[in-house]
Design a protein around this nucleic acid. Sequence first.
DNA 1: TTAATTCATAACCGATAAGCTATGGGTTAC
DNA 2: GTAACCCATAGCTTATCGGTTATGAATTAA
Lengths: 107, 107
Amino acid sequence: MSQSHDEIFRTLADPTRRAIFERLCRDGDQTVGALTAQAGISQPAVSKHLAILKRAGLVRDRHQGRQTHYSAELGALSPLIDWTSQMTGFWQSRFNQLEDLLKRMDQ
Amino acid sequence: MSQSHDEIFRTLADPTRRAIFERLCRDGDQTVGALTAQAGISQPAVSKHLAILKRAGLVRDRHQGRQTHYSAELGALSPLIDWTSQMTGFWQSRFNQLEDLLKRMDQ
DNA sequence: TTAATTCATAACCGATAAGCTATGGGTTAC
DNA sequence: GTAACCCATAGCTTATCGGTTATGAATTAA
């Protein structure tokens, strides 16, 4: 059903991962070292988070010499946006149904 | 920083919990029994999920006799929507900065 | 009053996940 | 060539989490 939803939600559920992603959105391209410097955890932990973010399509990596640059992939947020508008949309549709019902009762 | 973000993301990260929330959005008010019938897990598990959803503000409960009705609280999705637009907004701002830079270089 | 129903809580178990250290592969500097 | 640097992977430990069964509290039905 919502396989892509699942991975995105699970990936963004971790605060450290969200912080990394937010950093990439705010400041653009960053190396692993730069991300580690502010993450407050070890470099391997950061690499692991980046691998998970990459697997979810939320980031891209670009190898340049011995360092790897990561950047946010905003398109991957679409399922999230779609999901929320679908949820609110469901409500709208139920609301409209109620409206129609009231309108019919009024006549 | 993102305390409310954290709880919402963590809460919606579980597929069972999302399914329950989606059901409430689609079909409106539901009793625990009705939700259990389609959840594929035990009633205590459903109650536990509902407690977590409630703690996150995503659902409201209404006691009626010996049964409890739950309904979706769509307003609780605002932080999620705000977060995503903030992320894309960061990109826009950086894009505009780049645009400005290019414009300045052009002159 | 007694029995049945509906839901919540408690106690426990297995799996998952996030952190660490150690290590290795690849690249640049000396 | 050797050393230093950057990053990824492996292996391990611990904590969290989602599920279960058992039980209790509250309400309705008989």
